[in-house]
């Protein structure tokens, strides 16, 4: 079966992998001229379904639980399984209890254990939550590696192309996010920074509880750190605002004052596509299967959504009109 995948963000790449793995002849088209520049490129790369459960609904945990295994199996060496450390400034200690009451899969850690986990943070925080089952990866390296792996196994990539029709393809997988033009979608703006702080080493993502949005520092190779991410109800992809920059830098500085000496090597803005319930959907209409609404969970939910989309694309028995699969057991009002 010949399948056209539209969009080379994390959704398109994971979908291409699952389709190729089932024997499809896959072509990926991307309007941009390279892998970069989309929301996936700006992602934190945290595979942290237990932490996300603090604000996300149960399906995010259910669908994201196996994400680290998927990435590890597909891209050996890219996933770091070192958990997540969640901390709060002393005056926000109540926030830590609130976070704990909304999540599972953690153990409480004291000053000594924090020092063992992250020696650079010794003496800076007296308590925190450690989520040992979580993992992280570098989204850009992972996307580049997945692209290379797919291209090497016969998946065709066409960059700088806007595929208008799907002549010659039996199925189309729409992974274009906001560009899909789905009326139900809204954009949630996320701003991030990349800092280079040679003095600091962290082994795992560190989350700092913040009253308005979850701030985190995700370590990358060579003492680089991604600091993210704001959550603003806006489609605007304009530059990072001064307020957001201050809040992100303030969080980094609170985690370790040596971040004050860091170089700001990049600022970025990504627009996350989200449905009103902030949960993802895989839907089939005719020959097109659409994956969308991954919100702030592209790398976490991409694998599960890709598997569903691939299964749906191959399922000839289903009525072609409309198929919807979300697993959203929304609580009723």
């Amino acid at each position: 079966m010949r399948v056209l995948v539209k969009g080379a963000g994390v959704t398109g790449l994971t979908a291409a992998f699952e389709l190729a793995a089932r024997g499809a002849a896959v072509t990926v088209v991307e309007t941009r001229h390279s892998l970069g520049g989309n929301a996936s490129w700006m992602a934190g790369g945290m595979l942290a379904p237990w932490c996300e459960r603090e604000s996300a609904e149960q399906p995010v945990l259910d669908l994201g639980r196996d994400a680290a295994d998927w990435w590890d199996a597909v891209l050996p060496g890219h996933v770091t399984r070192a958990g997540t450390l969640v901390m709060a400034m002393p005056r926000d200690a109540g926030e830590l209890d609130r976070f704990a009451s909304r999540t599972s899969g953690y153990r409480r850690v004291d000053e000594d254990e924090i020092a063992l986990l992250e020696p650079d943070l010794a003496g800076r925080f007296d308590r925190g939550l450690f989520f040992p089952g979580e993992a992280h990866l570098d989204p850009r390296r992972a996307m580049a590696a997945l692209h290379e792996k797919l291209a090497g196994s016969g998946v065709e990539f066409r960059f700088g192309v806007d595929a208008k029709d799907m002549a010659g393809f039996e199925r189309q997988i729409d992974c274009t996010g906001m560009a899909a033009g789905d009326e139900r979608l809204r954009g949630v703006r996320g701003e991030m920074l990349i800092l280079h702080a040679p003095e600091i080493s962290l082994s795992r993502p560190v989350r700092l509880l913040h009253p308005r949005f979850p701030l985190y520092l995700a370590p990358r190779a060579g003492h680089y750190f991604m600091v993210g991410a704001t959550m603003i109800e806006s489609l605007s992809s304009g530059p990072v605002t001064a307020r957001s920059m201050m809040e992100l830098l303030n969080a980094a500085y609170s985690v370790h004052p040596a971040f004050g000496e860091a170089a700001i090597v990049e600022t970025g803005v990504g627009i996350r596509p989200a449905f009103p319930d902030n949960l993802p959907r895989v839907e089939r209409q005719g020959k097109t299967v659409a994956i969308n609404g991954l919100y702030r969970h592209g790398f976490l939910l991409g694998p599960a959504m890709a598997r569903r989309a691939a299964a749906m694309a191959f399922d000839h028995g289903k009525p072609a009109e409309h198929a919807d699969e979300t697993d959203c057991q929304r609580r009723s009002a």
Binding site: L185, R186, G187, R189, R212, I232, E233, S234, L235, S236, S237, G238, T241, P276, A333
Partner: peptide, 28 residues
């Protein structure tokens, strides 16, 4: 709906980036 409130407050600055590009949230 559950609260049966008749007035909701909205923050132009904090929630909607000063009104730029936040039309979807506003329509919700």
């Amino acid at each position: 709906n559950a609260s049966r409130t008749s007035v909701v407050t909205v923050s132009l600055r904090r929630e909607m980036a000063g009104g730029r590009g936040g039309e979807k949230f506003w329509s919700l």
